[in-house]
Design a protein around this nucleic acid. Structure first.
Lengths: 206, 206
DNA sequence: CACAATTGTGAACACTTGTACACATGAGGA
DNA sequence: TCCTCATGTGTACAAGTGTTCACAATTGTG
């Protein structure tokens, strides 16, 4: 090979996924990306793409898997920071928003994928959200903050919470990354959404 | 012209918008549509596109305007059916879901546009949702069902309601149009979401 | 009626696209 | 050592892309 550094196995694969993500982060929609465009951004020859992915949908699916890792890392951080229940909402929303800003491209990809054109990607993201909601339900049980709800109602509540937060995601992502005042407003509004939901849960079928 | 029927002015324009919508309805993402593809689906020569639209984003913007009409028609119907407040949630959700199914392509376009690549389309859809939420707030005031909430809190509640319903939209659209049992489940879950939110609103800052 | 404006048409352009093929390189096992 | 396999490269081609141009038909208005 004429290269000076020998590419480790999987390096090109990562470069391709990062390239796709970078393009999404620049405002492009994943569905409109082409193989050549991605390989160009990755400084790789088009043919290499096929060594790692069958087509763009395949790449999308693997991005969903990585997205799962990001979400799990976020949950771990949230769990370690939020010890007492009184500041639970504000701190969790804060952590979520800061992760959304630090992994802007990833979360853009997620927001796009929910209504994307690949059924498989769509289902993958939906499944990540379900997992997230069920973990949230576990945590709330553990913190004994919703003792009066049965499992089904708790699941519903957590589902609604996750959906609301996910929707706020699109608010944040449509803002400039450094527009602090607006971001602060989204943070406050999201927290109030969650408070409203939890007030509802607290008075549910009393 | 060699045609047997003379095209009325604006006919091709409608054909193009319908064609784009039809492709979206077939599962394609709007961002991935090309001018030639749309004109082909509309049985029109590519050049005609430019007679009516500057580019695909322009077409998207005009679709958002038509989407606004669909939403207004839906609100009018809801207002005429929902006279007393007790069945308010169930009936409204039912009307929404039936409209979502009757205008599948339109609502798919809306769901896609929220995280689409045209900032203008994104803002347009967001603005439609805000309008929808403010109309909902008016109706709730009129029905005197939330008298204890101040204006800001009512707006927040309606915003959350609209967001939750919009998210349910993606649930419905990912289902087969004739999968009644699943759709019924989405309907029920959405209604419970709204009930939870309204219980929260009823006990807000007591 | 004639005239200008609007709308539709077909051919042509310079590019980009997805994909295939044959080949080069390095790593690891026999 | 040699052989094989996974990975990366360069070239090539047919098909599709956005956009422009000059021209035809139909419309409403004077």
């Amino acid at each position: 090979m004429a290269e000076r550094t020998r590419p480790k196995p999987g390096e090109t694969r990562e470069k391709l996924m990062d390239a796709a993500l970078a393009l999404v982060g620049k405002g492009r929609h994943f569905a409109s990306l082409g193989i050549r465009e991605v390989t160009r951004q990755a400084s790789v020859v088009p043919t290499s793409f096929y060594r790692h992915f069958k087509n763009m949908d395949d790449l999308g699916l693997q991005l969903v898997d990585e997205l799962g890792l990001v979400l799990r890392r976020m949950m771990r951080e949230a769990r370690s920071y939020v010890l007492q229940a009184d500041k639970l909402i504000d701190e969790s929303v804060g952590i979520f928003i800061s992760h959304a800003q630090n992994n802007r491209s990833f979360f853009m990809f997620m927001a796009q994928g929910l209504a994307g054109e690949s059924r498989a990607v769509q289902e993958g993201i939906r499944s990540e959200m379900r997992y997230f909601a069920s973990e949230l339900a576990n945590d709330l049980r553990r913190l004994r903050v919703v003792d009066h709800l049965n499992d089904a109602d708790l699941d519903m509540t957590c589902d609604l919470v996750v959906r609301s937060v996910a929707f706020s995601l699109t608010d944040i992502l449509s803002l400039a990354p450094d527009d602090e005042p607006q971001i602060e407003q989204v943070r406050k509004r999201t927290a109030r959404f969650l408070q409203l939901i939890f007030v509802g849960a607290a008075n549910w079928r009393r």
